[in-house]
Computed example of a mutant assay.
Amino acid sequence: MASSILSDCSSSATARLLPFHRKLHTQDFRFHRSVSIPLRPPSPTSSRSAASRFWSLSAVTPVAMTTDTSAKLIDGKMVAKQIKDEIAGEIAKMKDAIGIVPGLAVILVGARKDSQTYVRNKKKACEAVGIKSYEVHLPEDSTEEEVLKHISGFNDDPSVHGILVQLPLPRHMNEQSILNAVSIEKDVDGFHPLNIGRLAMQGREPLFVPCTPKGCMELLHRYAVDIKGKRAVVVGRSNIVGMPAALLLQKANATISIVHSYTKNPEEITRQADIVIAAVGVANLVRGSWIKPGAVVIDVGINPIDDPESPRGYRLVGDVCYEEVSKIASAITPVPGGVGPMTIAMLLSNTLDSAKRIHNFK
């Protein structure tokens, strides 16, 4: 059974997972016609002003429910670019009005190539929209106290509006203690327990929502997926994506199920969903047989598998078997180019929101 989970769903030979970045901390997964979702552009009177601007300026069209065998592509790369353009405009207005430029501080411990790439990409994204970036690179053998000292300094620095500790941290460090040390007012990653707690409570709003699940929801909103009253399944329950994604869907008035490593009949449960978010870090786990015809599928996974035909020797696939699911779903995110670009866009959005809140700028 394990071999079927870790195999490519296309016609190529059996695929092997390669070491990769920032796993979703899931336990071993042993997972061995329909109600349609109206997909429509937002109403001109919608309170989602950003979404309205997006629909008026971009080439995205709403997803129509059809019986075609090919799903509509949810283009995260294009949506992220649109959001970055909106953010750049707001930052320029803020700078002109009150002379404030949002600042994002990133703390990197160790020399992991993937983490260095992430930090480099975040710096480029900040520069592109006008956010000032601050970086601290510490050696692998740094003490927890050294990391906490830098966090404390950024907490007290008025020019810094967001603090991000790049994960994973070295094994000798207590990740929870370090993340909890970030001021909740600057927790642009959205991992502070008070932010998650507020997200879980009715009538409360967190200061920040974790970037990847926020990006998933933004894609659903911008492609005008009707969430209210729909059945949604989140595959995976990590603190980074799965749990906050489920809470966000619930806040949007969907009926939620979470599928995890102890779930019995996960295929049957997932097949009832109008909306599926897959976030487990297992290549091609969600097959076509898991999906109800016409469902909308958001694939968070980024998994490298062997590919002798690729110049790099591997290629990236999601947690969803795209080849199978794209023939059944009404809309689906690709990997790469789906949720990934949205994560950084939401980080920039959270940093801007923090600066506006701290300086009371509307």
Rank of each mutant, 00 (worst) to 15 (best):
S7I: 03
C9F: 01
P19K: 08
K23Y: 01
F29R: 08
S34C: 01
S36C: 02
I37R: 13
I37H: 02
P38R: 00
L39Y: 05
P42L: 11
S43M: 03
S47P: 03
A51L: 07
A59D: 08
A59M: 02
M65G: 15
M65W: 08
D75R: 01
G76R: 07
K81V: 03
I83S: 03
K93A: 13
V101L: 09
V101D: 02
P102D: 09
A105H: 12
L108I: 15
K113C: 15
S115T: 12
Y118Q: 10
N121T: 06
K123D: 00
C126F: 06
A128K: 00
A128E: 02
V129S: 06
G130K: 01
I131Y: 03
T143G: 09
L148Q: 05
K149I: 05
G153S: 05
D157Y: 04
G162I: 13
P170F: 10
M173K: 01
V182M: 14
I184M: 03
K186I: 15
D189S: 08
F191S: 01
H192K: 03
L194W: 11
N195W: 03
A200Q: 06
A200C: 15
A200Y: 11
M201D: 15
E205N: 01
E205P: 00
T212V: 14
L220Y: 09
V225Y: 05
K228H: 10
G229W: 03
G229Y: 11
G236Y: 04
S238A: 06
N239W: 06
M243W: 07
M243Y: 03
L248C: 01
K251H: 09
S257D: 11
V259P: 00
K264R: 07
E267D: 07
E268T: 07
Q272V: 10
I275K: 11
V276K: 12
I277K: 13
G288H: 14
G294K: 06
I302M: 10
P304R: 14
P308Y: 04
P308R: 04
R312L: 04
G313P: 01
G313R: 00
G318E: 11
V320N: 07
T333K: 13
G337L: 09
T343F: 11
T343Q: 11
A345E: 05
S354V: 09
H359R: 12
F361C: 15
K362Y: 07
